[in-house]
Design a protein around this nucleic acid. Structure first.
Lengths: 152, 152
DNA sequence: GTTGCAGTTGCAATGAGTTGCACAATAACA
DNA sequence: TGTTATTGTGCAACTCATTGCAACTGCAAC
């Protein structure tokens, strides 16, 4: 795996714990939570501590090998960055999430660099809002008295 | 305060606890943390619980009266949205944060709407990256062996 | 007035994630 | 090979934030 090489190139140790975490993120389709990673690591080696998982994830994040995204579920999800880079639109009404191309963020990235000299890390964004289907519904449900106050 | 009217218009009760939280956010210059709000509320009325503060903040957030931003400090900051809307660029190296105009996000917002039919809530963004001053430094400190591995 | 009920609060428990510290594993080097 | 310095791990304690639940509040209907 290319990640393992990067880790070692950067002078970090490739410990069994780190290999297991990397393996599991690699095997998982899509985004995976820290708790899930921990559980799967423990199936192989039951003595790995959750803090080690978190520390490994933070290290991989720092090296831009994985992305960390809050999809509004109460915990954070991780994903390998080698895959085609994409981001997520999360509907605050129906909860569905939709991928969108990294391309869409490039103008913003360029603008921040040009106007503010700021090199933005746009590894993975989750943008909240209303999806196409929920947009009309939300528009109507303005006042609270009718039905259910537009609670999410 | 306009917020109090909005709260009542939407059919929510304007309780003393909520008034105190709103007051304090209003009086505070810039962003304020939940813990800070709680402490200041308790100076006036010592029996208010932190969970009430959080619940009030979540309600105000839902009504788009305040914005919630993770500036990477280990806790979240809140701010009234009536003020001139702006966002933050947070340097992951020196920790400084710089405001940027909401204007810069409008093209992205328009693009998401046009291409995906998605109405993005862009109340307050904190974008991480490298500021103008730290950019050259980071470029050099690639390999870990020299100095301190580019730790943040 | 009192009953019913939705909305709200305080409290305690819980969950996700982080940190400090002692010890273990590895690297560096004589 | 043995010694020392550095890095990484496990554990426990901690922080920030959320949740479940019982009790309280305001208001409308009777």
């Amino acid at each position: 795996m290319s990640c393992t090489i990067t880790l070692q190139q950067k002078g970090y140790r490739l410990t069994p714990q780190r290999m297991m975490v990397l393996d599991i993120i690699h095997d998982s389709k899509g985004h995976i939570s820290a708790e899930e990673i921990h559980q799967r690591v423990r199936q192989r080696y039951p003595f790995v501590n959750i803090s080690t998982v978190y520390r490994t994830l933070n290290l991989l994040k720092k090296l831009h090998l994985i992305s960390e995204t809050d999809m509004g579920e109460g915990y954070v999800r991780y994903e390998l960055l080698e895959r085609g880079r994409h981001h997520h639109l999360v509907c605050r009404r129906c909860g569905q999430s939709f991928a969108f191309e990294h391309e869409s963020l490039k103008p913003l990235q360029a603008r921040l660099l040009k106007e503010y000299g700021f090199a933005a890390d746009l590894d993975h964004f989750a943008i909240f809002g209303l999806c196409q289907r929920c947009r009309p519904a939300e528009g109507k449900a303005g006042a609270r008295e009718e039905s259910q106050r537009g609670d999410d």
